[in-house]
Design a protein around this nucleic acid. Structure first.
Length: 309
DNA sequence: TTACAAGTCCAGTTTACGTCA
DNA sequence: CCTGACGTAAACTGGACTTGT
């Protein structure tokens, strides 16, 4: 048995199939193709001596019946899609000079033990091919050896988003179930969740940056205002004729018990916490909201407390 | 206890695709 | 209509980590 693999042109069979086995000395041919992300391995191929051995063995075991399909020279062409949607859309063609490659559940069909032991891999490959086939015919028509990017449908994206809202990580069972439900590969679901987590983290970082920026602005404004207040207090201190000075010691630190605001210009200072995601762990350790005590001034802003004139 | 394989996650990167000027 | 810049998302890569044997 000889097996050939070609990439691209489906119309050209392999030479050895028509040249009566010029590579007979090769008992086991291993073809491994590494192209971009394509990693495809085939280890098949029997020389004529082995074919004779198999034939005689089959004649013994089958009484000379039922193995003709194995040893005839019918050329089988398998047009395989890439094993992965991210792989080449180029059809992979496998040519065989007999039909024993097809696993139909009959263990007798492939007399080689290797064939039987590879059955699971074959089926896995077939499943991948079916999955790839379900993704549409664009890849097949493209014919370029490039990574074809899949755009998830709106329905798929929405479903994944809903799943992500419930939990941002998946265990293997959930991943497989979700993939089955969406007609995707488990790897695609896994990648989607990884990218989704990355996007969430990026968004959170942007929010954090915005928050810290506003904190910085607020602190700068507070600093400016406190400098101004200090300057005013110094003026008051030097003015001995001021009757309020002794009643309002500069060290009196208090604030409105209701809204934690002062009557000063700080009432207009933005409170960045309101725009911050309260569930963010990054918030911890940041000294906001600003509850820092202020110098006492009448709460002219407060509706329930009449401001003194 | 150690070594190893397998699986997962993350950060960073690449790349295909859509949009817009 | 074409084209290049740009943003986005899917996919890849390599390292770190965990878990089971």
């Amino acid at each position: 048995m000889e097996l050939g693999l070609s990439l691209g042109d489906a119309s050209k069979p392999f030479n050895f199939l028509t040249e009566n086995n010029t590579q007979k000395e090769t008992q086991l041919q291993t073809t491994k193709i590494r192209n971009n992300s394509l990693d495809f391995c085939i280890a098949l191929g029997l020389n004529q001596e082995l074919q004779k051995t198999h034939k005689s063995h089959d004649e013994e075991t089958n009484g000379g019946h039922g193995s003709d399909d194995i040893h005839n020279n019918t050329t089988l062409q398998l047009n395989l899609l890439p094993l992965s949607p991210v792989l080449s859309p180029v059809p992979l063609q496998i040519y065989s000079n007999h039909q024993s490659l097809s696993y139909n559940g009959s263990s007798d069909n492939g007399s080689s033990e290797n064939m039987g032991s590879n059955k699971r891999e074959f089926e896995a490959m077939r499943n991948d091919v079916v999955e790839a086939d379900s993704r549409g015919s664009d890849e097949e028509e493209n014919g370029l050896n490039t990574r074809k990017k899949l755009r998830l449908s709106k329905e798929q994206s929405a479903f994944l988003e809903e799943s992500f809202k419930e939990q941002s990580t998946l265990n293997p069972k959930q991943k497989i179930a979700l993939a089955k439900q969406l007609n995707l590969r488990a790897r695609q679901v896994e990648v989607w969740f990884q990218n989704r987590r990355a996007r969430t983290k990026l968004k959170q970082t942007e929010v954090d940056c915005e928050y810290l920026k506003r904190c910085c602005e607020t602190l700068t404004e507070d600093n400016r205002r406190l400098h101004k207040e200090l300057q005013e207090l110094r003026v008051l201190k030097t003015s001995s004729s001021n009757p309020f000075y002794m009643q309002l010691p500069a060290t009196t630190l208090t604030m409105c018990p209701s809204c934690e605001r002062t009557a000063s210009s700080s009432a207009a200072v933005p409170q960045p916490v309101a725009a911050f995601d309260s569930s963010s762990p990054q918030k911890e350790g940041i000294p906001f909201p600003l509850t820092r005590p202020r110098l006492f001034f009448p709460f002219s802003h407060h509706p329930n407390q009449p401001a003194s004139s």
